[in-house]
C-alpha cells in the first residue's frame, strides 16, 4: 500500500509517564485519516513526533517511506502542519503572516496567494490578524500549512475553539483538499462527529496505544447494529429470545436491546416473540454511531 506516514513501535516517555506506547500506524496516500482519542491519549505527542519536534524514546517515524530522523528537512518539505493553536503574528496582516513563512521555506509569491485563495481569505489578506475572527485565524493557519503545496497535511485539533460556522468552514475545506488537490490528511481530534463526517480511515488511540486502525467502514462492520424493543412482558421476551439463542440486554422498564445482523434478523425476532405470546410496542434498528463505537473500543 502507498503510504505517507508510518510509525513503527513509536514510544515517547516523559519521566514515568509513557505518552506514546509502541504505536504502529499507517496513513495511506489520499486518505483523510481521523486520529481519535480522548484528551491526554497521546494524539498531540504523536503529531510532535511525526514532525520531529520531539525525539522518540524508541521506534521510528517514516514519511513517504523514509526515516524522518535521517532526512528530516527533505521530508518536511512535503508536509504541512497545524499543531494545536494557530501560530500567527497578530500585529501583521494576513498576507505578511504568510510572507514570513514564505521567505523561510522559499515558496513563491504565487504559492502564497494561491494558499490565501484556497482558504478564501484573498479579500481580507491585508487586514491585521488581530482583527480576524477565530475561524479566519484558523483558515489562515491552514493557508500557512498549505503554502508549500504539501502531499501530507497534519492537523491537530483544527476546529478547537471554533463556533459551528467556523467548524463547518474548516470541515468543507478538509473535504475538498484530498479530492481537488490530492492531499493526504492526518487529522487529530476528540470531536467524533467531526471525524465521522470527513474521515475515510480511523485510528483510535488511548493511553498512548493504538486500539483500532482501519477504514471507517471496517470500524462500522466490527460493530453490529442494535435492535431496541419495547414489549409488554420483558421477562417473557427475554426467555423466548434466549431460547432462540439471542443475547438480550435489559434497558430497564419494558425496553430490551440485542445485537442483530440486519433487517432479516428483525423480522425473525418479531415472529419469534409474537409466537411466544409477547406483544411488541416498538421496534427500532439502530446503527451505532462513531461515538458508540469509540466508547465501546476505549472502554473495553
Amino acid at each position: 500500500m502507498d503510504t505517507t506516514l508510518i510509525t513503527h513501535d513509536l514510544t515517547r516517555r516523559f519521566g514515568e509517564l509513557t505518552a506514546v506506547d509502541a504505536l504502529t500506524l499507517s496513513v495511506p496516500r489520499g486518505a483523510v485519516y481521523g486520529f481519535l482519542g480522548p484528551n491526554g491519549a497521546g494524539k498531540t505527542t504523536t503529531i510532535r513526533l511525526a514532525l520531529g519536534l520531539i525525539h522518540p524514546s524508541a521506534g521510528e517515524v517514516l514519511l513517504f517511506g523514509q526515516p524522518l530522523r535521517r532526512r528530516r528537512l527533505e521530508l518536511l518539505r512535503r508536509v504541512g502542519a497545524l499543531v494545536e493553536v494557530p501560530s500567527l503574528y497578530p500585529h501583521l496582516s494576513g498576507r505578511d503572516n504568510l510572507e514570513v513563512t514564505r521567505r523561510l521555506i522559499d515558496a513563491t509569491k504565487a504559492q502564497r496567494d494561491r494558499a490565501l485563495a484556497l482558504v478564501g481569505l484573498e479579500d481580507d489578506a491585508d487586514r491585521l490578524v488581530k482583527t480576524f475572527s477565530m475561524g479566519m485565524k484558523q483558515r489562515l493557519a491552514l493557508a500557512l500549512a498549505l503554502m508549500g503545496e504539501p502531499e501530507l497535511l497534519i492537523l491537530d485539533e483544527p476546529t478547537n475553539g471554533l463556533d459551528p460556522a467556523g467548524i463547518r468552514e474548516i470541515r468543507e475545506l478538509i473535504c475538498k483538499l484530498p479530492q481537488e488537490h490530492g492531499i493526504t490528511i492526518f487529522l487529530s481530534s476528540h470531536l467524533l462527529a467531526e471525524i465521522e463526517q470527513v474521515a475515510t480511515h480511523i485510528g483510535i488511540i488511548q493511553q498512548g496505544r493504538l486500539l483500532f486502525e482501519g477504514t471507517l467502514d471496517a470500524l462500522h462492520a466490527q460493530n453490529e447494529p442494535q435492535l431496541v424493543l419495547e414489549v409488554d412482558k420483558p421477562q417473557s421476551a427475554k426467555e423466548v429470545l434466549h431460547a432462540y439463542g439471542w443475547k438480550v440486554r435489559g434497558n430497564g422498564g419494558h425496553s430490551l436491546t440485542l445485537a442483530v445482523n440486519g433487517a432479516a434478523d428483525v423480522a425473525r425476532i418479531n415472529t419469534q416473540l409474537v409466537q411466544g405470546g409477547v406483544n411488541i410496542y416498538h421496534l427500532n434498528l439502530q446503527q451505532p454511531t462513531l461515538e458508540d463505537i469509540f466508547l465501546a473500543v476505549t472502554q473495553a
Binding site: 508536509v79 502542519a81 497578530p90 523561510l104 500557512l144
Partner: peptide, 22 residues
C-alpha cells in the same frame, strides 16, 4: 515574546528549515 505569545516555535520548527538557522 513574538514567538512565545502565539506558540510559534512548533510552527517554525516543523518547517523544512534548519533549527539553527531559525
Amino acid at each position: 515574546q513574538l514567538e512565545h505569545a502565539q506558540e510559534h516555535w512548533k510552527h517554525l520548527y516543523a518547517l523544512p528549515v534548519p533549527r539553527g538557522l531559525i
